[in-house]
Design a protein around this nucleic acid. Structure first.
Lengths: 71, 71
DNA sequence: CAATATTATTCCCGATCGGGAATATTTAAC
DNA sequence: GTTAAATATTCCCGATCGGGAATAATATTG
């Protein structure tokens, strides 16, 4: 999973929901410029804001540790 | 999923793998201070570096869009 | 083609990042 | 208690964020 992957998924999900960039940006409380750069795969985006965008789209994140290290 | 959750999981996984903060930081190519702040739930951490840490620990991220929006 | 919608790029600039290194502070071991 | 290990906090400071607004470029539609 790369930042480019995340950006692509965000853009795709946004489109299938019929949202414009400025609408999603407003919903997630971020700037339009930030969203543009995030969709383009910006490595340096702040993780909190990335989570806000994902959440605004209803995208659920799951983190699975390597097998056998859960204990 | 919050940044605090991510930080907690990173710390926990790091501990179960017997890694010190400086060791993981070196493996992920980030600074020790960054890792400390990330484990504490720093909202403003750069997403690229967060992914690097997760990857160094073998933690897999999955993003699932809301049902019915995959098309 | 013309008109519009949408996305992307650039400007300025205060605020904050994030690094290494040094210094606490906390925790563990003997 | 003492020595050491591990974690956390501060210092300085160049690099970059990220905002709004304006402009440019790229679809879409009639």
């Amino acid at each position: 999973m790369t930042v480019t992957d995340i950006g692509s998924l965000i853009r795709q999900t946004r489109n299938t929901q019929g949202l414009r960039q400025d609408e999603l940006a407003a919903a997630a409380n971020v700037g339009v410029r930030f969203l543009i750069e995030l969709e383009a795969g910006k490595e340096t985006a702040q993780v909190g804001k990335v989570l806000a965008v994902l959440s605004a789209l209803g995208i659920v994140m799951t983190l699975t540790p390597p097998a056998g290290t859960t204990s």
